Computed example of a mutant assay.
Amino acid sequence: MILAFTGAGISQASGIQTFMERPDIRDHLHRDFAIENPEEYRKTLRNLVDVVEQAEPNDAHIALAEYKIPILTMNVDGLHQSAGSESVVELHGGLPTEDEMDYADQLYNKPVLYGDPAPNYYKAITKVSALTEDDIFLVIGASRFTQIAVELREIAHYQGAEIIEIQEDAVREVRYVLEQEFKNK
């Protein structure tokens, strides 16, 4: 079995900058900021939603869907689902709908903010803990800047799974790796 773990790097080719490239957005995704600056927070989310709505899944997203790879993602952009993936655990939730935007500062898990509990972390840890030495943990565009990203890699390693990292050129590399793995099966 292959289990994919994706971060912002997979969506860069779709026109979505990482939060490391956009500290103006990252700095506003804190629960304290949302409480103290609800209007500015909602404006930040509207801008983020506008960017995401313009984005299309790239071939990395499409390849994962075609090969029916289950996905754990730190992304809130919904591109895995748009590509057709059916088994997606969104570690940081999703984005508010247009109807929810007027009270987005009061929502939880849309997205998970810094300072909020992340209820899907347990689901991710459970899935990675089920890996064996016969499995592959495919890490795509996920840095080691968050504790969960480090922890999931450590659990996969402890379980004996092969860890394959794709941090550059995910659009080309994901399909190549999947083709190789399925050719060898």
Rank of each mutant, 00 (worst) to 15 (best):
V150P: 00
V150K: 14
V150H: 06
V150D: 10
V150N: 12
V150W: 09
E151I: 14
E151T: 15
E151Q: 14
E151D: 11
E151V: 13
L152Q: 06
R153A: 03
R153E: 10
R153F: 00
R153H: 05
R153N: 01
E154G: 00
E154R: 13
E154I: 07
E154A: 08
I155R: 03
I155H: 04
I155Q: 02
I155T: 04
I155K: 02
A156L: 05
A156T: 04
A156G: 02
A156S: 03
A156W: 04
A156C: 05
H157F: 09
H157W: 07
H157G: 00
Y158N: 11
Y158M: 12
Y158G: 00
Y158R: 12
Y158E: 14
Q159P: 03
Q159A: 10
Q159L: 00
Q159E: 11
G160Q: 09
G160W: 10
G160C: 09
G160D: 04
G160T: 12
G160R: 12
G160L: 09
A161T: 06
A161G: 04
A161H: 03
E162T: 15
E162D: 12
E162R: 15
E162P: 03
E162F: 03
I163W: 05
I163R: 02
I163A: 04
I163V: 07
I164M: 08
E165W: 09
E165I: 08
I166E: 05
I166K: 06
I166P: 03
I166D: 01
I166Y: 03
I166C: 02
I166F: 05
I166N: 02
Q167K: 11
Q167D: 11
Q167L: 13
Q167C: 01
E168C: 02
E168Q: 13
E168L: 06
E168P: 00
E168S: 11
E168T: 12
E168F: 13
D169E: 12
D169F: 13
D169I: 07
A170H: 01
A170R: 01
A170F: 03
A170L: 04
A170E: 02
V171T: 15
V171M: 07
V171E: 15
V171W: 01
E173Y: 05
E173A: 09
E173L: 07
V174L: 13
V174K: 11
V174Q: 11
V174F: 10
V174M: 12
V174A: 10
R175Q: 15
R175D: 15
R175Y: 11
R175A: 13
Y176R: 15
Y176E: 14
Y176L: 11
Y176H: 14
Y176A: 11
V177G: 00
L178W: 08
L178K: 10
L178F: 07
L178G: 05
L178R: 06
E179I: 08
E179W: 04
Q180H: 11
Q180P: 00
Q180G: 15
Q180Y: 05
Q180R: 15
E181C: 06
E181L: 12
E181P: 00
E181S: 03
F182K: 04
K183Q: 04
K183V: 02
K183E: 01
K183I: 03
N184H: 12
N184T: 09
N184Y: 02
N184I: 06
N184L: 09
